[in-house]
Simulated scan of single mutants.
Amino acid sequence: MTSAPPERHPHLLNVVDVEATCWDGQPPPGAVSEIIEVGLTVVDLAAGERIARHGILVRPERSSVSPFCTELTGLTQDQVAGGVSFAEACRILRDEHAARTRAWASWGDYDRKQFERQCAAPGARYPFGRTHINAKAVFTGSHGLRRRPGMAQALDVAGLPLEGRHHRGEDDAWNIAALVLHVAGRGDWPEDPREEPSDR
Results as ranks from 00 to 15, higher is better:
Ser66Ile: 03
His97Thr: 01
Ala47Ile: 02
Gly48Pro: 07
Phe86Asn: 04
Leu179Thr: 05
Pro190Met: 05
Gln114Val: 14
Pro6Gln: 02
His11Thr: 01
Ala46Gln: 11
Glu37Trp: 08
Asp24Ala: 14
Ala99Gly: 03
Asp199Phe: 08
Pro161Val: 02
Thr140His: 06
Asp109His: 06
Asp188Tyr: 13
Ala31Thr: 14
Met1Trp: 14
Ser66His: 04
Ala137Asp: 12
Pro5Cys: 08
Asn134Glu: 04
Val42His: 08
Arg94Tyr: 02
Asn14Val: 04
Ala135His: 00
Gly187Cys: 08
Gln79Ser: 00
Gly123Phe: 06
Arg117Ser: 10
Asp172Phe: 10
Thr101Val: 15
Asn134His: 03
Val180Tyr: 07
Ser3Ala: 14
Met151Cys: 10
Ala121Asn: 10
Gly83Ala: 09
Arg102Met: 08
Arg59Phe: 08
Val80Asp: 05
Leu12Ile: 00
Cys22Leu: 10
Ala177Trp: 00
His143Ser: 09
Met1Thr: 15
Phe86Cys: 05
Gly187Thr: 01
Lys136Thr: 09
Ala47Pro: 00
Val183Gly: 05
Gly129Val: 01
Pro5Gln: 13
Gly141Trp: 04
Arg50Lys: 15
Ala89Asp: 01
His9Asn: 11
Thr41Arg: 04
Leu40Lys: 02
Ser142Cys: 15
Ser106His: 00
Ala4Asp: 13
Met151Gln: 13
Ser63Lys: 01
Gly185Met: 03
Glu170Tyr: 08
Ile51Asn: 03
Ala154Met: 04
Arg8Gln: 10
Gly74Ser: 08
His143Thr: 11
Ala89Ser: 11
Asp109Asn: 13
Arg186Val: 04
Phe139Asp: 11
Leu72Glu: 07
Leu13Pro: 03
Gly74Asp: 06
Ala99Arg: 01
Ala173Lys: 00
Gly39Ser: 03
Arg100Ala: 14
Ala52Gln: 07
Glu7Met: 10
His167Lys: 07
Leu12Gln: 03
Glu88Arg: 13
Asp44Asn: 15
Gly144Asp: 01
Ser106Gln: 00
Val180Ala: 11
Gly25Leu: 09
